[in-house]
Design a binder for these strands. Structure first.
Length: 425
RNA sequence: GGAGAGAUGGCUGAGUGGACGAAAGCACCGGUCUCGAAAACCGGAGUACGGGCAACUGUACCGUGGGUUCGAAUCCCACUCUCUCCGCCA
């Protein structure tokens, strides 16, 4: 959520930032409501003050045995009605303002490339180069089916299209990846591991920015009004909801593996083969609560943590700096990591690392106290996949496939898989 | 699913409808004392929003939302959550 203060103080900057994201300009409308709200609020407060004073007098008089006169009571009554009116009007304005602010995306940082679509994304760096297999490689869907480690048919039988089932070495490979990633981030990068609910309440989705705007992409249980998380970012953001984090605790680093559920309505018909885009997948997510001053540097570090996974798995990858029009709703700056997949010959997005500045903290009312006795402030939050499992599996299968149809397991995973190769049938 | 109890400041915990933003204790911060510390004593500490250049000041907040009243932490209604016991269950 954007601060109303900033809108009052510097509407033009906000306007410009929103425009760079292709957002319609609602700044003037919000400011108008805000002026009306302040007017009503001030008036109501003044009348209340008056009423409180008289009421105090009534109290004093009564305790010395003097009941108030009917005239005074009647006057107080009418003041009460007036306050009610002003309050109702102020509350209405407040609700409208809140709703409009909730609908606004975060403001991009000044160094983010401006542009409307993916064409304006900037390549930040590239590590390694697209590799050739030197023989006719298979895309992962053929490869995995032939190896008997993914069953698409039966996945769909259970839950419909875009669901799948992994079997044997495939299931083991995924579990190994999860364990290895969590171990790396906790032991080398300073993260604390979390195990989280995969289903959350409505207000939690609002805190992270997924609701009300993106209900379309979420699975929802009507009966209990519970929502399936599209990423661990959602519950982690809300861990400290409505809290003031005491001095000395930031930065907080968390990592969690959760299933992620996405309806992918907007992507209907796209990437329908294989496991590149599915309704349920596992993801290891890194998350940070940090002091505002440090968030820019922390984003670089976070990105490095995700890249370390790519490095140790032997991938070639590139980092994109997303342009204003391509960033997610809550992000002020985002890097995407794409790894090369030699079978389908394309770059696959395996991680998205974002600095959300104070956007989520405001929405979820998460604050921290910089020092003993200091005023509470909004921390900055960052999140990054480290990494999303299906596409990592795609890359491993496709890049490490051998002419005989087998797949070699990256060295770092072998202690976790217990095998060094998935053999062809 | 059934029965009961509860929700008050960072924590514990008082609070006959009127002096209650709220006793007391703990924790915390500052000071006195001390070579230093502990103890003791004195003092200070909530959050949000409005107004003001500021000192400051006003309002709201006792789980949430309504209601009664001139006035609600206190009375009434609904909801949410927590805890205990019973049942069921991985």
């Amino acid at each position: 959520m954007i601060a109303i203060d900033q809108l009052r103080r510097d509407p033009d900057t906000v306007r410009k930032a929103l425009d760079s994201r292709g957002e319609p300009d609602s700044v003037a409308e919000i400011l108008e409501l805000d002026a009306a709200w302040r007017h009503d609020r001030t008036q109501a407060d003044e009348i209340r003050n008056q009423r409180n004073q008289v009421n105090r007098d009534i109290g004093h008089a009564r305790s010395s045995g003097q009941p108030p006169s009917p005239e005074v009571i009647e006057e107080m009554r009418s003041l009460g009605r007036k306050v009610d009116e002003l309050e109702a009007s102020a509350q209405k304005a407040e609700e409208q303002i809140h709703e409009m602010l909730l609908g606004l995306p975060n403001l991009p940082l000044s160094d983010v490339p401006v542009g409307a679509d993916t064409d304006s994304n900037r390549i930040y760096r590239t590590e390694g180069a697209p590799t050739e297999l030197g023989f006719e490689g298979l895309p992962h869907w053929d490869l995995a089916e032939r190896l008997g480690i993914i069953d698409f048919q039966r996945g769909a039988k259970l839950s419909g299209s875009r669901f799948y089932t992994t079997i044997g070495a495939g299931a083991r490979l995924e579990r190994a990846l999860i364990s290895w990633m969590l171990d790396l981030h906790t032991s080398q990068h300073g993260y604390t591991e979390l195990a989280l609910p995969a289903v959350v309440r409505r207000d939690v989705m609002e805190g992270s920015g997924n609701l009300p705007k993106f209900a379309d992409n979420l699975y929802h249980d009507e009966e209990d009004d519970l929502w399936l998380i599209p990423t661990a970012e959602v519950p982690i953001t809300n861990l400290y909801r409505d809290e003031i984090i005491p001095p000395g605790q930031l930065p907080l680093y968390y990592v969690a593996q959760t299933p992620c559920f996405r309806r992918e309505k907007a992507a209907a018909g796209r990437d329908t083969r294989g496991i590149k885009r599915v309704h349920q997948f596992n993801k290891v997510e890194m998350y940070q609560f940090v002091e505002p001053d440090s968030s820019a540097d922390q984003l670089e570090r976070l990105l490095g943590h995700a890249e370390e996974i790519c490095r140790q798995l032997g991938f070639s990858w590139r980092v994109l700096e997303l342009c204003t029009g391509d960033m997610g709703f809550a992000a002020a700056k985002t890097y995407d990591i794409e790894v090369w997949a030699a079978g389908c010959q394309e770059w696959l997005e395996v991680s998205s690392c974002s600095n959300c500045t104070d956007f989520q903290a405001r929405r979820a009312n998460i604050r921290y106290r910089p020092e003993q006795g200091g005023r509470p402030q909004f921390p900055h939050t960052l999140n990054g996949s480290g990494l999303a499992l299906p596409r990592v599996i795609i890359a491993i299968l496709e890049n490490n496939q051998q002419p005989d149809g087998s797949v070699i397991i990256p060295e770092v995973l072998r202690p976790y898989t217990g095998f060094d190769r998935i053999h062809a049938p």
